Amino acid sequence: MRQLTEVQENPVLLLRKAHALLGSRLAVMSSFGAESALLLAFVAEADPDIKVLFLNTGKHFPQTLTYRQELADKLGLTNVEDIGPSPAQVSDRDPTGELWAFDPDACCNLRKVEPLQVASLPYEVLVTGRKRGQAATRATMTIVEERADSQQLRLNPLAFWSARDIQAEMQRRALPPHPLVAEGYLSIGCAPCTRPVDGQEDARSGRWSGLNKTECGIHIAAKPL
């Protein structure tokens, strides 16, 4: 997918080019989280019919579910699909709903990693909203990544955007922030595993706080292209 390198600096052109090349083999992953509105605005500008995948883990904040619907409507996105674990798998592996408390990796596998693996099989390229500045673990990411464990590519149009740049562009476009941002949630995942952060911490330090865990697993095993 070297054809994408010439338009990497412009997110809308990158998305438009990727969609023209791939059509239904391209999808966007979105958490509808703290900074998701900007990438989704770029998606809507490129083509509002681009597939957007939302992982509904069953553990989201209610505010996230409301925001997911309101933002999709505001931007005119016409192809948002909710994916998640099957009720049978949840009943079998997390009958009390408390797996997150004693085995968060297993909970992420059940509710995020495995559902995405199945849902993403038709796609050659998945677009993410990850940025280098979110955490040290993402500091070397590139705009175009090749998965080390598959032939699938990841596109990260906002990889080099700073939090300040993102906020400025969101304000310029009058994009509504996630309602929990005002309460100090700068990276928003499942409710049991997310806390607010202060100004001295990176955005993702509120995820799995106090644990030796920094990623849910859906973005692991990618290498630069």
Rank of each mutant, 00 (worst) to 15 (best):
residue 24 S to F: 09
residue 24 S to W: 09
residue 25 R to E: 14
residue 25 R to M: 08
residue 26 L to A: 06
residue 26 L to R: 04
residue 26 L to Q: 07
residue 27 A to D: 06
residue 28 V to E: 03
residue 29 M to I: 09
residue 30 S to H: 00
residue 31 S to M: 00
residue 31 S to E: 00
residue 32 F to A: 00
residue 32 F to Q: 00
residue 32 F to L: 00
residue 33 G to M: 06
residue 33 G to R: 04
residue 34 A to M: 06
residue 34 A to S: 13
residue 35 E to W: 05
residue 35 E to L: 06
residue 37 A to N: 02
residue 37 A to C: 04
residue 37 A to Y: 01
residue 37 A to G: 02
residue 38 L to C: 07
residue 38 L to E: 01
residue 39 L to E: 05
residue 41 A to I: 00
residue 41 A to G: 04
residue 43 V to Y: 02
residue 44 A to G: 03
residue 44 A to R: 00
residue 45 E to Y: 03
residue 47 D to G: 01
residue 48 P to W: 08
residue 48 P to S: 13
residue 48 P to Q: 09
residue 48 P to I: 11
residue 49 D to H: 15
residue 49 D to N: 14
residue 50 I to L: 08
residue 51 K to W: 01
residue 51 K to V: 12
residue 51 K to A: 12
residue 53 L to G: 01
residue 53 L to C: 09
residue 54 F to T: 01
residue 56 N to E: 12
residue 56 N to H: 14
residue 56 N to I: 07
residue 56 N to D: 15
residue 56 N to Y: 11
residue 57 T to M: 10
residue 58 G to E: 07
residue 59 K to T: 10
residue 59 K to V: 03
residue 59 K to F: 15
residue 60 H to F: 10
residue 60 H to L: 15
residue 61 F to E: 05
residue 61 F to Y: 07
residue 62 P to Y: 08
residue 62 P to N: 10
residue 63 Q to C: 10
residue 63 Q to M: 11
residue 66 T to E: 14
residue 66 T to K: 13
residue 68 R to K: 14
residue 68 R to H: 15
residue 70 E to Q: 15
residue 70 E to L: 13
residue 72 A to L: 09
residue 72 A to Y: 05
residue 74 K to H: 12
residue 75 L to M: 04
residue 76 G to Q: 02
residue 76 G to F: 02
residue 76 G to R: 00
residue 77 L to A: 09
residue 79 N to G: 05
residue 79 N to T: 07
residue 80 V to F: 09
residue 80 V to W: 03
residue 82 D to Y: 06
residue 82 D to M: 11
residue 84 G to C: 08
residue 84 G to H: 05
residue 84 G to Y: 06
residue 86 S to L: 15
residue 89 Q to G: 09
residue 92 D to F: 13
residue 92 D to G: 08
residue 93 R to T: 10
residue 94 D to A: 01
residue 95 P to K: 09
residue 96 T to E: 15
residue 97 G to H: 02
residue 99 L to W: 04
residue 100 W to P: 02
residue 101 A to W: 02
residue 102 F to C: 10
residue 102 F to M: 02
residue 103 D to I: 04
residue 104 P to V: 08
residue 104 P to H: 11
residue 104 P to N: 07
residue 105 D to F: 04
residue 107 C to I: 03
residue 108 C to H: 11
residue 108 C to K: 01
residue 110 L to W: 08
residue 110 L to E: 07
residue 111 R to G: 10
residue 111 R to N: 08
residue 113 V to W: 05
residue 113 V to F: 10
residue 115 P to I: 03
residue 116 L to A: 14
residue 117 Q to H: 14
residue 117 Q to K: 15
residue 118 V to K: 15
residue 118 V to Y: 12
residue 119 A to K: 09
residue 119 A to I: 08
residue 119 A to M: 09
residue 120 S to C: 13
residue 120 S to E: 13
residue 122 P to M: 04
residue 122 P to K: 08
residue 123 Y to T: 04
residue 124 E to P: 05
residue 124 E to S: 14
residue 125 V to I: 11
residue 125 V to K: 05
residue 126 L to F: 05
residue 127 V to T: 03
residue 127 V to R: 00
residue 127 V to S: 01
residue 128 T to I: 00
residue 128 T to W: 01
residue 129 G to W: 00
residue 129 G to N: 00
residue 131 K to I: 03
residue 132 R to M: 08
residue 132 R to K: 14
residue 132 R to G: 08
residue 133 G to M: 10
residue 133 G to K: 07
residue 133 G to C: 13
residue 134 Q to M: 13
residue 136 A to D: 12
